[in-house]
Design a protein around this nucleic acid. Structure first.
Ligand SMILES: [Mn+2]
Ligand SMILES: [Mn+2]
Ligand SMILES: [Mn+2]
Ligand SMILES: [Mn+2]
Lengths: 225, 225
DNA sequence: AATAGAATTTAGACCCACCTAAAAATAATA
DNA sequence: TATTATTTTTAGGTGGGTCTAAATTCTATT
């Protein structure tokens, strides 16, 4: 078993790698709220343990072993989030914090039991895919809601789960994963977006729309090719 | 919040205090599997934080503040044990290990939700009382099964939860809390004990009988006063 | 009361994860 | 290309929790 710290680093590396491709010391420093110097020394440790490869001043990359552990922790995290939401009614903006701690002490046995109770789910409450036990994951290809145009319809795929305020904000307008909605209007220069969700209209700030990812985009008739 | 280590020390101190009255450095060393020297230095820390009082070479005693935290952790531990058993079907010999870790990262909110789902229970799967939110606990007054005599009936109150093998052993004969049974015979010099549980007979070693605590003892007619 | 044995504490050290301040390497810009 | 700015690493230090080996203090026994 690895320390909580190591597991959190590996998870962060996986996530940054996925989002930006390259994983710099500074990006880890920011994500994990530790000083860059601390990251450097942890990188040295991870590198000695062959969990990441590292070229000085060039960022890190997960090894096969590192990715395995990383996905194992992400599986814990997301199963826990979903379990808390489903079985104990924890609101979706609070599950992340709880999972952040619990993920490190969850036994494999309990992981399996939760998985079974939930019916072997594939998505967490924010729409993120849950890696399978053997460490495979199918990332979604979705686009930010902010990139849609007037008249388009789409389905919410995933909402970033790192800011509880954001989750409460978009939750208030019903923008949960799998929810279909339509863009009524979108103002230029990152202006507000008017959307229709299940009959009612809402105004969504472009900042938030950056963190809501959508799929199944339908063009309005007039713009079909 | 306190560290996991501090919480485990406080919990151990509470338990030893309850069982033996006096809490020595060595008893903590054994219970926590750390060197006596480590205990001494932790005691110094707990003492500075006013969680225990300590007279050199004389053992420690929880302060009000120390007891409060201790009972808070014990509440977490026992609620978790019960939740795992009830909601996820974890066998009673495995819940302790899982709880030992999770207890330190459980939020108050989740504690309350589990408590509610379980219907505000008062006993964990091993029969131990669950402290209330405000830190009160009513310890049972029970006696070891080993102290019973031939012909007596009693009800299982509590089984020590620190040895999974013991739990599986007594579990096999159905000696769960609230189970009524009768002593058919008991051999002298710590000999084996023959008991009847729900119709069927079992032989119980005296070692195990030391860790099964019973209550509601009924004398056989012939020995009534 | 003296002494042997047991329990406890002190001394000194290790590993982990973090920090700040300063140096070094890389990237951006004039 | 030379200079400046940014990023990353090194150097040195702290606190938390543990260890072993050596003192100290208490307890039991003669
Ligand atoms: Mn975490
Ligand atoms: Mn999530
Ligand atoms: Mn514990
Ligand atoms: Mn228990």
């Amino acid at each position: 078993m690895y320390t909580e710290s190591i597991e959190d680093y590996l998870k962060a590396i996986y996530e940054i790698q996925k989002e930006y491709g390259k994983v710099s010391t500074n990006s880890l420093s920011e994500k994990l709220n530790v000083a860059p110097a601390s990251v450097t020394s942890m990188i040295k440790k991870l590198s000695e343990k062959k969990l990441v490869t590292h070229k000085r001043y060039q960022g890190v990359k997960l090894t096969k072993a590192g990715q395995k552990i990383s996905l194992e922790i992400i599986r814990h995290h997301r199963l826990i989030e979903l379990y808390l939401a489903e079985a104990l009614g924890v609101p979706w903006d609070q599950v992340h914090e709880e999972a952040e701690k619990w993920e490190h002490v969850l036994s494999e046995d309990l992981e399996d039991r939760m998985d079974a109770v939930l019916g072997h789910p594939t998505r967490d409450p924010h729409g993120s895919p849950i890696p399978s036990r053997d460490g495979t994951i199918t990332e979604l290809d979705s686009i930010p809601l902010a990139d849609l145009r007037s008249g388009q319809s789409a389905v919410v795929a995933e909402v970033s789960d790192h800011d509880p305020d954001l989750l409460r904000y978009v939750g208030k307008m019903g923008l949960y994963p799998k929810t279909k909605f339509k863009v009524l209007s979108i103002e230029p220069f990152n202006g507000p977006i008017k959307i229709q969700v299940e009959g009612s209209e809402h105004i969504l700030g472009s900042g938030a729309a950056q963190y809501v990812f959508v799929t199944e985009v339908e063009l309005p008739q007039s713009e079909m090719t």
